[in-house]
């Protein structure tokens, strides 16, 4: 679930890293949309810890702050850097793709986003609705981690919706003759939860049942083994 850098999200949000580690993590963050999403979430939680310590500020502070602000020039809005824009768009784009995946859903199993225009057009409303349902589930949880062979994964899971969405970024296409395979884990034997050659679209897993995790392996294209034969290269776990 974590590697050396990615595992620093908790200490980073709590400002508990030394200067060098903080810099390293921020460099990592700049290139990892999944990590920025996680950091933003954890930050909001940390902020609530902070706000719970609220105390009225000393009475003289207000006038001093306002006077100093009046003397202080404001920075202009940042120039839009292309890279920043791309990163910022990555998550909505993934969510939109996940909507496609949901709309293509036929009850059980997993579905890759299909970019076919007719699908997209006809089902757009429903998709947005279904994806919204998933994301707005009161128990929706986001789990993020590194893929051991490079790249990152993010899983949104809701027991109430009995579903999970798996989004992977930075993975190469599976080697010739092989495919990525998702597994539901944690409730007895791993159960197959979908296969895909490339990971550029989110995978929707419907019917997670009592599973408490998702794993990713690389498997032979043919044969569709009922149990994982490859090493687990990404795993996310949740508590029931």
């Amino acid at each position: 679930m974590t590697d050396a850098v990615h595992g620093l999200a908790g200490p980073y949000v709590l400002d508990a890293l030394g200067p060098a580690e903080r810099r390293d993590f921020e460099r990592h963050l700049a290139g990892c949309a999944v990590c920025s999403g996680e950091v933003a979430e954890l930050r909001a939680t940390a902020a609530r810890l902070g706000a719970a310590a609220a105390r009225p500020a000393p009475p003289g502070l207000r006038a001093r702050v306002l006077a100093e602000a009046a003397r202080t020039r404001q920075l202009p809005p940042p120039l839009p850097a292309a890279r920043v824009r791309r990163l910022r768009r990555a998550v909505p784009a993934l969510a939109a793709a996940a909507c496609l995946a949901l709309a293509a859903g036929l009850g059980t199993g997993w579905y890759r986003a299909e970019r076919r225009a007719d699908h997209a057009e006809a089902a757009k409303q429903d998709m947005a609705h279904m994806m919204g349902e998933m994301m707005s589930a009161p128990d929706a949880r986001t789990l993020a981690g590194s893929v051991s062979t490079g790249g990152h994964g993010m899983v949104v899971v809701s027991r109430q919706r009995d579903s999970a969405v798996v989004m992977l970024s930075g993975l190469a296409a599976a080697p010739a003759g092989r495919t990525y395979a998702l597994w539901l884990t944690g409730d007895g034997a791993p159960r197959p939860a979908g296969r895909m050659r490339t990971t550029d679209a989110p995978a929707m897993i419907h019917g997670i049942g009592r599973a408490t995790g998702v794993g990713l392996t690389v498997e032979p294209m043919s044969g569709a083994p009922a149990r994982p034969t490859g090493d687990q290269i990404f795993a996310a776990r949740w508590t029931r």
Partner: peptide, 8 residues
């Protein structure tokens, strides 16, 4: 926000 800021 001054109370949360100052308190923290």
């Amino acid at each position: 926000v001054s109370a949360p800021v100052y308190g923290l």
